[in-house]
Design a protein around this nucleic acid. Structure first.
Length: 331
DNA sequence: ATCATTTGACCGGG
DNA sequence: CCCGGTCAAATGAT
């Protein structure tokens, strides 16, 4: 109800995102058949295959997200989410980072837990748990010092287990939402370090957050802008710039669009609880995957590694209504 | 005191 | 029975 406004913004944002990526790709494919510009070596077109893959990934994940937003509020339809993921992933999977569906869920109260009192929460049978939506994501830890183990995430998790897996080099860790008991949030997450590349971690998410972490901030019209948030955005953008300039010297890496952002992203734990309206969800701002960039070679300069960068910064909350777009920001 | 992590036990599906 | 996932008591952190 009052959620619909926020969801619509998200949905619109995703669709616009996907559309832009699709148009870009369409344009590139249109020019691909024409002879390449003389300043490019004959083998290279305007977009590397990597960039094409990234574009495709953006398109797929945007529409995926949009679909999930449409039926994602109902647990019964969760299989659809999984099927969509499975169907979409083979396209975007090799080395790419599959996007997690943004966990937007306004309608909790799955009738499973009418639980009260001290009765243990065994309300979700294992069969029902299997029906929960499931998706995976790969992250590469930044070569920053010391950052091992716990991967910064928008959500707060609580570890509840670790197991050695049969053929795997590293153990698998099991996390559940911190607010499982207090808010009946059944989101879980598994972390598995990759065998071959120890800087890669496979994350498997199961279930969507129904806790306040997954609930968007309440829409207060005419709220004074959150300066913390704005500063934070600026920091992120600055971070992006530095990261990008480093990367461009080597060319774009395979994960060039999943920008590592120095943790901690944001801590909002003090905003919970009794305050009620003060909760500020940074989730859709702070995840690196919500930054997207279209990078193309600058056609005006002949040789050197100068790129045109088209940044998009996905806004979803009430602070801003439009897309922050930085066009042709040469780095 | 509360809250998180560790770690062997336990359980269910294949 | 084996394996992956979860529980829960013990332990650690604050």
């Amino acid at each position: 109800m009052d959620m619909s406004n926020w969801e619509q913004k998200n949905l619109l944002s995703e669709l616009v995102h996907g559309l832009k990526a699709a148009k870009h790709l369409q344009a590139e494919l249109g020019t691909a058949s024409s002879p390449p510009p003389p300043w490019l070596s004959s083998s290279s077109l305007c977009l590397t295959t990597e960039m094409r893959e990234t574009l495709l990934h953006q398109i797929v994940s945007s529409y995926e997200k949009a679909i999930l937003m449409l039926n994602g509020s109902n647990v019964v339809h969760s299989q659809t989410a999984e099927m969509v993921n499975l169907a979409a992933n083979p396209v975007a999977n090799n080395g790419k980072v599959p996007e997690s569906p943004t966990s937007i869920n306004g309608s909790p109260r799955s009738e499973e837990f009418i639980d009260v009192g001290g009765s243990k929460d065994y309300n979700l049978s294992s069969k029902k748990r299997k029906m929960l939506p499931k998706w995976t994501e790969q992250v590469r830890i930044s070569p920053e010092r010391g950052l091992e183990g716990p991967h910064e995430d928008v959500f707060s998790w609580r570890k509840y287990g670790q197991k050695d897996i049969l053929g795997a080099k590293y153990p698998r860790s099991y996390y559940r939402c911190t607010f499982r008991n207090t808010q009946n949030c059944w989101a879980t997450k598994q972390v598995q370090r990759s065998d071959d590349d120890p800087t890669i971690f496979d994350l498997t998410y199961k279930g969507k957050h129904t806790c306040s972490q997954g609930i968007p901030p309440r829409d207060k019209p005419d709220t004074t802008p959150n300066t913390t948030l704005i500063n934070y955005q600026n920091d992120l953008l600055a971070n992006l710039r530095t990261n990008l300039s480093v990367r461009t010297t080597n060319g774009i890496e395979s994960d060039g669009f999943s920008f590592p952002v120095t943790p901690p992203f944001y801590s909002y734990e003090s905003d919970f609880g009794n305050g009620g309206g003060t909760f500020c969800d940074m989730g859709n701002y702070s995840r690196p995957s919500d930054f997207t960039g279209l990078i193309s070679t600058n056609t005006s300069t002949g040789s050197s590694p100068i790129f045109d960068v088209d940044f998009q910064f996905d806004p979803t909350a009430e602070i801003n209504t439009g897309l922050h777009t930085f066009l042709h920001d040469s780095v």
